[in-house]
Protein backbone atom coordinates (compact mmCIF):
# COMPACT_ATOMS: atom_id res chain seq x y z
CA UNK A 1 0.00 0.00 0.00
CA UNK A 2 2.73 2.48 -0.96
CA UNK A 3 0.88 5.25 -2.75
CA UNK A 4 0.01 8.89 -2.29
CA UNK A 5 -2.99 8.06 -0.11
CA UNK A 6 -0.84 6.07 2.31
CA UNK A 7 1.75 8.87 2.21
CA UNK A 8 -0.94 11.41 3.14
CA UNK A 9 -2.18 9.25 6.01
CA UNK A 10 1.35 8.70 7.32
CA UNK A 11 1.85 12.48 7.21
CA UNK A 12 -1.35 13.33 9.05
CA UNK A 13 -0.89 10.55 11.60
CA UNK A 14 2.60 11.84 12.38
CA UNK A 15 1.20 15.35 12.59
CA UNK A 16 -1.49 14.16 15.02
CA UNK A 17 1.15 12.52 17.22
CA UNK A 18 3.21 15.71 17.35
CA UNK A 19 0.29 18.05 17.91
CA UNK A 20 -1.43 15.97 20.59
CA UNK A 21 1.86 15.68 22.47
CA UNK A 22 2.44 19.42 22.08
CA UNK A 23 -1.10 20.24 23.21
CA UNK A 24 -0.68 18.23 26.41
CA UNK A 25 2.76 19.79 27.00
CA UNK A 26 1.51 23.35 26.43
CA UNK A 27 -1.55 22.72 28.59
CA UNK A 28 0.51 21.59 31.57
CA UNK A 29 3.35 23.99 30.81
CA UNK A 30 1.06 27.00 30.72
CA UNK A 31 -0.28 26.13 34.17
CA UNK A 32 3.21 25.76 35.60
CA UNK A 33 4.82 28.67 33.78
CA UNK A 34 2.72 31.82 33.94
CA UNK A 35 4.56 33.70 31.16
CA UNK A 36 3.55 30.98 28.66
CA UNK A 37 -0.10 31.35 29.59
CA UNK A 38 0.23 35.15 29.44
CA UNK A 39 1.81 34.91 25.98
CA UNK A 40 -1.03 32.73 24.73
CA UNK A 41 -3.62 35.13 26.16
CA UNK A 42 -1.96 38.27 24.78
CA UNK A 43 -1.29 36.76 21.33
CA UNK A 44 -4.66 35.08 20.79
CA UNK A 45 -6.89 37.13 23.16
CA UNK A 46 -7.48 34.02 25.34
CA UNK A 47 -5.12 31.17 26.31
CA UNK A 48 -7.63 28.50 25.25
CA UNK A 49 -8.18 30.14 21.86
CA UNK A 50 -4.41 30.04 21.42
CA UNK A 51 -4.25 26.34 22.24
CA UNK A 52 -7.21 25.65 19.94
CA UNK A 53 -5.72 27.48 16.99
CA UNK A 54 -2.24 26.08 17.48
CA UNK A 55 -3.52 22.52 17.81
CA UNK A 56 -5.86 22.23 14.82
CA UNK A 57 -4.08 24.67 12.52
CA UNK A 58 -0.77 23.10 13.48
CA UNK A 59 -2.18 19.65 12.75
CA UNK A 60 -3.35 20.71 9.28
CA UNK A 61 -0.22 22.69 8.40
CA UNK A 62 2.20 19.96 9.52
CA UNK A 63 0.07 17.27 7.88
CA UNK A 64 -0.09 19.10 4.54
CA UNK A 65 3.58 20.04 4.76
CA UNK A 66 4.68 16.44 5.35
CA UNK A 67 2.36 15.26 2.57
CA UNK A 68 4.11 17.54 0.09
CA UNK A 69 7.51 16.08 0.89
CA UNK A 70 8.69 13.32 -1.47
CA UNK A 71 9.38 10.76 1.25
CA UNK A 72 7.31 9.32 4.06
CA UNK A 73 8.47 9.34 7.65
CA UNK A 74 7.52 5.90 8.85
CA UNK A 75 4.96 3.20 8.19
CA UNK A 76 1.28 3.74 8.81
CA UNK A 77 0.45 0.74 11.00
CA UNK A 78 3.08 1.33 13.72
CA UNK A 79 2.39 5.07 13.59
CA UNK A 80 -1.30 4.44 14.28
CA UNK A 81 -0.28 2.48 17.38
CA UNK A 82 2.04 5.29 18.44
CA UNK A 83 -0.90 7.67 18.00
CA UNK A 84 -3.08 5.41 20.15
CA UNK A 85 -0.56 5.49 22.99
CA UNK A 86 0.06 9.21 22.53
CA UNK A 87 -3.64 10.04 22.90
CA UNK A 88 -4.01 7.73 25.90
CA UNK A 89 -0.95 9.01 27.76
CA UNK A 90 -1.63 12.67 26.92
CA UNK A 91 -5.22 12.37 28.17
CA UNK A 92 -4.09 10.68 31.39
CA UNK A 93 -1.35 13.31 31.87
CA UNK A 94 -3.87 16.15 31.58
CA UNK A 95 -6.40 14.48 33.89
CA UNK A 96 -3.67 13.52 36.35
CA UNK A 97 -2.22 17.02 36.38
CA UNK A 98 -5.53 18.76 37.03
CA UNK A 99 -6.48 16.12 39.63
CA UNK A 100 -3.24 16.95 41.40
CA UNK A 101 -3.95 20.68 41.10
CA UNK A 102 -7.53 20.29 42.35
CA UNK A 103 -7.03 17.90 45.26
CA UNK A 104 -3.38 17.52 46.21
CA UNK A 105 -1.45 20.69 45.47
CA UNK A 106 -1.15 23.32 48.14
CA UNK A 107 -1.80 26.73 46.63
CA UNK A 108 -0.49 29.85 48.41
Amino acid sequence: MHDKNTHALVSFTLSAILIITATAAVTIGAELHAPLKSWLASTFSHHWIGKSILSFAGFLIIGVGLSLLPRSFGKLLPLLYVLLWTVLLSSLAIIGFFYYEAFLAVHP
Binding site: I20, T27, K51
Partner: peptide, 8 residues
Protein backbone atom coordinates in the same frame (compact mmCIF):
# COMPACT_ATOMS: atom_id res chain seq x y z
CA UNK B 1 -8.06 20.60 26.81
CA UNK B 2 -8.70 16.92 26.09
CA UNK B 3 -11.54 17.95 23.78
CA UNK B 4 -8.87 19.39 21.45
CA UNK B 5 -7.86 15.81 20.61
CA UNK B 6 -11.28 14.89 19.23
CA UNK B 7 -11.36 17.02 16.05
CA UNK B 8 -7.86 15.74 15.22
Amino acid sequence: HIFLFLPV
